[in-house]
C-alpha cells in the first residue's frame, strides 16, 4: 500500500489524544507524525503517506483556525460571530483537509467520527480519498486507510 519502508501517518489534532492512541495501537504499522494546526499540517504533509484527522479543534486558538469567521457569521449564523467561530472549531478538521488537498496533498485521510453517510459522501466528493471510522478502533482505521490506498 505504501512506498516507504515504514509508512508515515500524519496525525492532525488539537490535543494529544490521537497521537497517544496512534503511538500505542498503530505504531507497528506507521511512523507517527503529530501536528496541531493547519499551518503545521501543511508543513509536515510532504513525505507522509496517510492522515488521521481530528474533526473538532475546540482547544485551538482563534488565530490558528482556518476559515473566515466573519463570512461564516454573515452567511450561516445571522451575523453571530461567536457562533461562527465555534462552528469553525467544531468542523476544523474538514477545513484543514481542504487546505491540504488544495496544496496538492492527496494522501488517504481518515476521521474518527460517526459521520452521516450523506455527509461522508459529500466529503469524498470534495476531497477524494476520505474515510471515517466511528470510534477509536485501530483495526478499523488500518482497514479504512488500506481501502483508500
Amino acid at each position: 500500500m505504501y512506498d516507504a519502508v515504514v509508512p508515515r501517518l500524519l496525525v492532525i489534532e488539537d490535543g494529544n489524544e490521537y497521537e497517544e492512541f496512534a503511538t500505542l495501537f498503530l505504531a507497528d504499522r506507521f511512523e507517527v507524525v503529530a501536528v496541531h494546526s493547519a499551518a503545521e499540517a501543511l508543513e509536515a504533509a510532504p513525505g507522509t503517506d496517510a492522515m488521521l484527522i481530528d474533526l473538532r479543534f475546540e482547544r485551538a486558538r482563534d488565530e490558528d483556525l482556518l476559515g473566515d469567521a466573519g463570512e461564516a457569521a454573515a452567511r450561516l449564523f445571522a451575523g453571530d460571530l461567536e457562533r461562527a467561530r465555534r462552528w469553525l472549531k467544531e468542523q476544523q478538521g474538514t477545513l484543514i483537509l481542504g487546505a491540504l488537498r488544495e496544496a496538492g496533498h492527496d494522501q488517504p485521510a481518515v476521521f474518527v467520527h460517526d459521520f452521516p453517510p450523506r455527509r461522508l459522501a459529500n466529503l469524498a466528493r470534495l476531497y477524494g480519498r476520505v474515510g471515517a471510522v466511528p470510534t477509536f478502533d485501530a483495526a478499523a482505521i488500518v482497514r479504512t486507510l488500506e481501502s483508500l490506498a
Binding site: L55, T135, F136
Partner: peptide, 15 residues
C-alpha cells in the same frame, strides 16, 4: 455528547 464522552471513554477499551 457522543464525541466528548462516548468517543474518548472507549479509546483504550475498544483496543
Amino acid at each position: 455528547l457522543a464525541h466528548d464522552v462516548g468517543k474518548y471513554v472507549a479509546r483504550i477499551a475498544r483496543n
